[in-house]
């Protein structure tokens, strides 16, 4: 069962701010889903390989050929937060 503290930790890992008031409600809803997920414990998966890809293909590559880039203006078109051709964000720490 996921605790209130774990909810807050996972919230931090996922960069979703969760205040102390919300974490109880989250814990309750997440636990009902996790409880349901727990039924997988019944399945015997001894010796079963995981399926990461359904299509059984390997070695898909492209040639090392330049196909072009976007103009700076277009790159920055979706934000107001920019300066001298750069994206701009608050300080890191």
């Amino acid at each position: 069962m996921i605790t209130k503290e774990e909810v807050e930790h996972v919230g931090w890992l996922a960069r979703i701010e969760i205040d102390a008031k919300e974490s109880d409600a989250y814990a309750e809803k997440l636990n009902s889903v996790l409880g349901y997920f727990g039924q997988l414990d019944e399945v015997d998966t001894e010796g079963v390989e995981p399926t990461y890809h359904v299509a059984d293909i390997v070695n898909v590559f492209r040639k090392d050929e330049v196909t072009g880039s976007m103009p700076q203006e277009e790159v920055l078109a979706n934000t107001e937060h920019k300066q001298e051709g750069n994206f701009k964000s608050p300080k890191i720490m």
């Binding site: 300066q83 750069n86 994206f87 964000s89 300080k91």
Partner: peptide, 12 residues
Amino acid sequence: SIDRSKGTLINY
């Protein structure tokens, strides 16, 4: 500096 910066510019 990294610990006393006013903001960050990002170039990809």
